[in-house]
Amino acid sequence: MSRSDTFHPFARVLHWLMALMILTMLFVGAGMVSTVETKHDWLLAIHKPLGITIFVLALIRLGFRLTHPAPPLPVDMPLWQKLAAHASHWLLYALMIALPLIGWGMLSAGNYPVTLGGGLLLPPILPSDPLVFAWLREAHRYLAWLFFLTFLAHMGAALMHGLIRRDGVLQSMTGGRTPD
């Protein structure tokens, strides 16, 4: 089951699982800071443990990706598209790891207990400092928006490969057979 033109099954499972989690995370984050309703509380209760789960999975995924190369891109893809593909993938990896870390660090600097629910508590990773909190909190917001924009580009490009170019790139992650 390790064809050279598809991702390893483990990579595919991680990809789709994390896609769902990250999208949920981005919507939960955007929603919880823009409402004063009671959903603010339960969205926040989802946001923190989900973020840490994404962080751990992202590290596993990065390790797997570094030891299991991705299928090559089609040879006839324009250079700029290849560069954009590689850059956006590494940006996605960077954001998957950086955003949870910034969230954790910002709560630490803001002197908040980093609670994951059920009495589970993470240690602070930064000393208490309101200035650091403010900068990290702003970074968390803007990098999350960047994450969402990168997701849109990623999804648009994947659909373009699947529907317009029909070059097997989308199938390399869905695992389905390329059209014949």
Binding site: R166, T178, D180
Partner: peptide, 27 residues
């Protein structure tokens, strides 16, 4: 299994609709 060149051998039909579908998903 079809190789990459094989996959591209047939140009897609209804290209405008396919682009519209992509745009709709992103929007």
């Amino acid at each position: 299994m079809t190789d990459e060149t094989g996959a591209r051998s047939r140009p897609p039909t209804h290209t405008a609709w396919r682009w519209a579908l992509i745009g709709l998903a992103v929007a």
